[in-house]
Design a protein around this nucleic acid. Structure first.
Lengths: 206, 206
DNA sequence: ATAAAAGATTGCAGATGCTGCAAGATCGCT
DNA sequence: AGCGATCTTGCAGCATCTGCAATCTTTTAT
């Protein structure tokens, strides 16, 4: 049992921590998906992962946080990605590009994210903690958008674009998770982006 | 003290109830605006209105509900208004018209709504309970929109339009409450609607 | 006007969510 | 092995929220 493959990367401690965190999130999602948010206690979640309830709160500041996962991280990466897009590309296109970051992260764990979307749609109180509605993240995005467009962050445009594209992403995610035969998430996002870029024209009637 | 002006309308009981409810909401908003959500207890709110904490929970199912007010009612009226718009007028225009309902209700109590927007923006957890993000209300709107446009409620379009126009309204409300010299709310809403109808073109740089 | 019915307010007991603190276990490094 | 840093845990305690039963007020019927 010599530390063979530990290498320079994160040590055993970090690994266990990530593991515990992920396990708590997954257990929480499964239980809540089964029984509903109110019918699941922190004690049960901790029990399922075999840690004390107190430890749960060392990982998450509240029950909800275990369900939404690390949205702050996703948001930060998205903002970084957005800032990295060359300034000459239009905002909407830039945002669409930046979304690829998140999209990939979602596609990396499809089942988990389906569970999450299911739980979130059934418990709207969680919605603003999710990327699409997270206000803290939005503020950061608004600033980057404002800088890109060259207007004041207090101007209506950046906030509007941010909110609308957020709605676009949420729309795509929800439809993606709801559809039985999982369509490609990027396609859904593209569709929605095209619709808003065209001014939301009414679709042809069947 | 004869019952002179009681008439057929709501009796004293109903009046007192409305009064208490409104008082609780106002007290809650004021206290939270001053000290922050976590620094205000239900006991303090009840104290301020001189009712027992238990009574507070007879009016509101949780602390947050006292802050957001009767959003379900607003949403219901909005949906009714939307359904009443002649079918030949385009969805976006119809939604814009339906929003007048809410706008008027907001303009009827400007100070209260400013407080509320302040509190909500400072406590994003409240956001989805507000009209603009309320998921239960959204579902109803999505259905009416779907019917108007003549597509399935599961189609992407109704949900997208609903979410986007919700963002529009929220955007306008936030800007309205934030601005020191309160601009006309309908104007702000019109601006935002125009922007999305035009496909969110980037504004001219100053 | 008075009594019965209906509804509102309240206190109390209790479950759950969440936090601070201090002791004990574990991990990483030398 | 041993030391310091970090993680886990139990415990005490406050706050949110619910169910129940008693009490009081308004409304309605007589």
């Amino acid at each position: 049992m010599t530390p063979t493959a530990t290498g320079p990367g994160p040590g055993r401690r970090d690994r266990k921590k990530r593991q515990t965190r992920a396990a708590l999130t997954e257990a929480a999602l499964r239980l809540v998906a089964e029984r509903g948010l109110a019918q699941v206690t922190v004690e049960e979640i901790s029990e399922a992962v075999d840690v004390s309830p107190r430890t749960f709160f060392n990982y998450f500041s509240c029950k909800d946080d275990a369900l939404v996962g690390d949205q702050a991280g996703h948001a930060a990466r998205l903002v970084a990605r957005l800032a990295a897009v060359p300034p000459e590309v239009p905002v909407l296109a830039a945002l669409r590009t930046a979304f690829d970051e998140v999209i990939d992260e979602i596609r990396a764990e499809p089942e988990l994210w389906c569970l999450r979307m299911d739980v979130v749609t059934r418990n709207p109180a969680l919605l603003p903690r999710l990327l699409a509605g997270n206000t803290e993240a939005e503020r950061a995005i608004v600033e980057v958008v404002a800088a890109r467009v060259g207007v004041d962050p207090g101007h209506a445009y950046p906030a509007l674009v941010t909110a609308v594209t957020g709605a676009v992403l949420r729309n795509a995610m929800t439809r993606w998770a709801a559809h039985p035969d999982r369509p490609d998430l990027p396609d859904l996002v593209d569709e929605a982006f095209a619709a808003i870029a065209a001014g939301l024209p009414e679709p042809d009637r069947p």
